[in-house]
Simulated scan of single mutants.
Amino acid sequence: MSNSRSAPPALVVAPLVDAHIHPDKTSWGGPWMSRLPADSLPALIANDLATQRGYGRSLEERAFALLSAALRSGTLAMRAHVDVSSELGTANVEGVRAAAERLAPALTVQIVAFPQFGLLTNPGTIEAMAASLDAGADLVGGIDPLGLEGDVAGHLDAVFGLAERAGRDLDIHLHDGGEPGLAQIGEIAARTVAAGMQGRVTVSHAFALAEASAPTLLDTLDRVAAARLWITTCALGPDPVPDLALLAEHGVQLAVGSDGVRDSWSPFGTGSMVDRTHLLAYRTGAITDAELEHCYRLASTEGGRMLGIPDIADWSGSSSDTRLEFVAESIAQLVVDRPEPSRVIRAGREVHHRTP
């Protein structure tokens, strides 16, 4: 008699969504790249620009390699933040869009025109941002109105104005912490309501929302919920991660992303949202099945709601023709063990099958 145990039945789950990724920066699929030290955001940004200029492989090739790996790992939709500046023009947007088109319709890619190198402080970038919306970008981006730009009102005037004129949604990077960060989030919430853009504005990272002792935290969370802002977190190594239960208690909408993957900012990242969900669970102290399942939901159907992807946001269960299949007993085990999907299916078409 054989002592071998039969494999667990296939676990069918909702597809994954990467709500925040930077595919134009990646070195994925290339040789090892040593990183330079940096002790500030401006230093990291300077390293990033130098690295992008030094790549020998085309941006489309690098982005396609990363997006392909993400698709194989079960990511069927992503929001890609792509650099736009006076130096780069719209080239990065065009490169990522070309890579994404090679994987459509299996992978849905929303591109954010991201002024990484400054908007007001980098003349010509506003014009490049506007041009990028005709070159393949879907959303308007922003970055640290106070910490990087030093002009909260001017920066928000520019990005909200561009979004409203173009009829596009908005996604703003906000690394600033403490009360200054919370004040900016509150101002973004107020402008969102004033513009009638509830549900169409995202604050990425929003590190200030992780500061439990901040006097205005709870009020800010209520303002975020009232404006129906989306928040994204990436559970990065040293970076703050919000209290998931507290945000849920206040009705704050949250999704999860990878951020940078093997770029000048960090040697880490795999492009797998299974891995990222595991990191989120680990960073937030998830122990119970319910907590682990909550982390998976943030990386799947909640991301689908944020991006407005019906076959993910409104996932109908194991009978859906868009689904992932894993060899696992439960979602909780899946989050902990991080297996690769055995099958990835979009709209009834198998887009990936892992050979045992």
Rank of each mutant, 00 (worst) to 15 (best):
I126E: 12
A130W: 01
A70K: 01
D171C: 03
Q116N: 11
M1V: 14
A106Y: 09
L139R: 14
Q253R: 15
D289W: 09
Q253Y: 10
W28E: 02
I143N: 09
R346D: 01
T108M: 00
T232W: 00
G257C: 01
L44A: 13
V193Y: 03
G30M: 01
A153Q: 14
L174W: 03
G196I: 09
H155T: 15
D311C: 09
A210S: 15
V12R: 15
S316N: 08
V201M: 04
G142Q: 09
A163W: 09
G269Y: 01
A63E: 03
V327F: 01
G141A: 01
N122R: 07
N47R: 14
V327G: 13
R283Q: 14
S258A: 15
T125E: 04
L36W: 08
R223Y: 10
S73Q: 10
R323G: 02
S58N: 09
P42I: 02
V241P: 06
A130F: 00
W315M: 06
L146P: 03
A131N: 08
H22K: 08
T125V: 10
L324M: 12
F160Y: 04
A190R: 15
D144G: 03
W32C: 00
L298G: 03
G177A: 12
A91C: 06
D176K: 12
D263T: 04
P242Y: 05
V327P: 02
A91I: 13
E211N: 13
H353M: 01
L67W: 00
Q184C: 11
A255Y: 07
D337T: 15
D243H: 14
W265M: 08
N122M: 09
I309G: 03
I45N: 06
S318K: 13
V193G: 01
F64I: 00
P242S: 11
E329Y: 07
R223E: 13
A38P: 04
A130G: 15
L221W: 08
G147V: 06
L280D: 04
R200S: 08
G150L: 03
L16S: 10
G271T: 02
D151L: 07
G136E: 03
G196N: 13
V17E: 04
V152P: 00
H352G: 10
R305I: 02
V140F: 01
G257I: 09
